[in-house]
Amino acid sequence: GCFECRPPRLQNCGNRFEEIARLASETIFTVNEVEALYELFKKLSSSIIDDGLIQKEELHLALFKTPSDENLFLNRVFYLFDEKKNGVIEFDEFVHALSVFHPNAPMEEKIDFAFRLYDLRQTGFIERKEVKAMVIVILMESDITLSDDLLEAIMDRTFADADADKDDRINTEEWKDFVLRNPNLLKNMTLPYLKDLSLATVFPSFTFNTRIED
């Protein structure tokens, strides 16, 4: 951060303040909250390689507590965070994506993010075979064995509820109707923690003093 600025670093700090102010203007976060997110980003982006970028392995380490890059859902989260699609999460991408998870973020943004998460092949539809593949991964992760008949029964019930036009794929309108009727499906799209984000609460040892007013 810029808390211990010495003259040689002032130029960098100026850029940092500009970036933080810009990110605050682009997202739901205040300047202080973006600054707090920067501290979190620094921690995550240095956990394996200290290069100021979050690698997929580093996201895996944060979510699963083990370093690996092989998990379908982690891949999807990483893919959506990585706006530039260059294989790493940069700070501005991190702030943009987390903004969607803020308790006060518009419901539309959460619905859209979840849709893109589950639209594995980016066809504009959540296809039945994609959903089945995701359920199989979840069952394997949880060490649950289900017969294919039971699995198909879950799929039938889900698509009877979600797929209004019965074409074995869920479009954006059907998805919106479905999640509005089943709001618990969006529970993991909200991180209550983001509402209490400030250096004072997250990093109590810091005395925060920024030149930019919120």
């Binding site: 999807r76 989260v77 949880s142 509820d161 979600a162």
Partner: peptide, 26 residues
Amino acid sequence: VSPVTMNAFELISTSQGLNLSSLFEK
């Protein structure tokens, strides 16, 4: 809750890979 009674997306949303609150664990 038995997985058999859940809908597919309820099951999927329990994935650890989708639980970003772990990012904030100290």
